[in-house]
């Protein structure tokens, strides 16, 4: 009995120790981002290695919010990322469901083609995509970005959703279909609620992937009013002599929408929704 208690204590201490080490590793770079963003420019190099600067300023944040177009960039990025996340998750859930539940002609070939699109560097498809989108009026528009991002993220999201559907026992929907549900009803009422954690995870991945995409945003967008956040950050480097403090301030602000988004989907990620759904 006592050996058991000691064992449990050890496990629990070990867990907290491992977790704190990882939290330190995960957060220190973010802390440093924040620390640079609140340091006055003149102290940036003289106090470069001290953990906290002797003077703190919010000037960088004020400049970013008032004197630059970053608020617009943020809004553009939120629009593009949300649009991409929703479209991709919807399209990929349908495709993932087909892969998980049906045997059909050409399944292997389609899976191979999906995988193939992920194997070729995007740098090489930008020029052809540009030529394709231009006559459709989709260059220099946020809609165009959503279309391209959705297309690029769909294969990955499809495979991810397939593996989440695979984890849901087929007996559940078979039972529902014997009871008179159509397959579509069984999908909506029984399978989807069980794959909700997986869908939310997918939504989160695609949101952040779109949130940080730089290359297409750089190549397809020309007008200032359509610029997304990563391109805006890049402008800090190329347009002026790099203002690190302002750039890090903008970068730190960029974490906020992504954090809110993750906070919203978090509760779906943790609840063990399928626990006990299938007995025997």
């Amino acid at each position: 009995m006592t050996a058991y208690t000691i064992n449990r204590r050890l496990w629990s201490t070990g867990r907290y120790l491992a977790l704190s080490l990882y939290v330190l590793f995960a957060l220190f770079p973010l802390f440093w981002l924040f620390r640079v963003s609140i340091s006055p420019t003149k102290l940036l190099y003289t106090e470069g290695t001290s953990l906290w600067p002797s003077m703190v300023t919010i000037e960088n944040y004020l400049i970013v919010l008032q004197d630059t177009s970053f608020p617009t960039y943020f809004l553009n990025s939120v629009t593009v990322s949300l649009g991409t996340a929703l479209c991709t998750t919807l399209i990929a859930s349908a495709a993932g469901y087909a892969f998980s539940r049906f045997k059909f002609k050409g399944k292997a070939i389609i899976a191979f083609l999906l995988l193939l699109t992920q194997m070729f560097p995007l740098v090489m498809v930008i020029a052809p995509i540009y030529r394709l989108m231009q006559p459709l009026g989709l260059t220099d528009s946020l809609t165009g970005l959503i279309v391209v991002y959705t297309a690029f993220n769909t294969p990955f999201a499809t495979f991810l959703m397939q593996s989440f559907f695979d984890a849901v026992p087929k007996d559940l929907e078979d039972a529902a279909m014997i009871d008179g549900c159509t397959r579509f009803q069984a999908l909506i009422r029984i399978v989807l609620p069980l794959t909700l954690p997986g869908m939310m995870a997918t939504l989160g991945f695609i949101f952040t992937a779109a949130w940080s995409e730089l290359l297409f945003a750089l190549m397809l967008i020309n007008s200032e009013s359509q610029v997304t956040f990563p391109v805006g950050l890049l402008n800090f480097i190329s347009k002026f002599s790099v203002d690190w403090g302002q750039m890090m301030a903008a970068g730190f602000l960029a974490l906020i929408p992504a954090c809110i988004f993750f906070a919203l989907i978090q509760k779906y990620l943790v609840t063990g929704m399928t626990a006990g759904a299938v007995k025997g």
């Binding site: 977790l19 990882y22 939290v23 995960a26 957060l27 770079p29 973010l30 440093w32 981002l33 952040t208 949130w211 940080s212 730089l214 956040f229 990563p230 950050l233 890049l234 750039m247 890090m248 970068g251 960029a254 974490l255 992504a258 954090c259 988004f261 993750f262 906070a263 978090q266």
Partner: peptide
């Protein structure tokens, strides 16, 4: 919530950081 944060940082910004 804390350990998932690095994923939310745009890759280009994490490179610079």
């Amino acid at each position: 919530a804390l350990v998932l944060l690095p994923w939310a940082v745009p890759t280009f910004l994490s490179g610079l950081n």
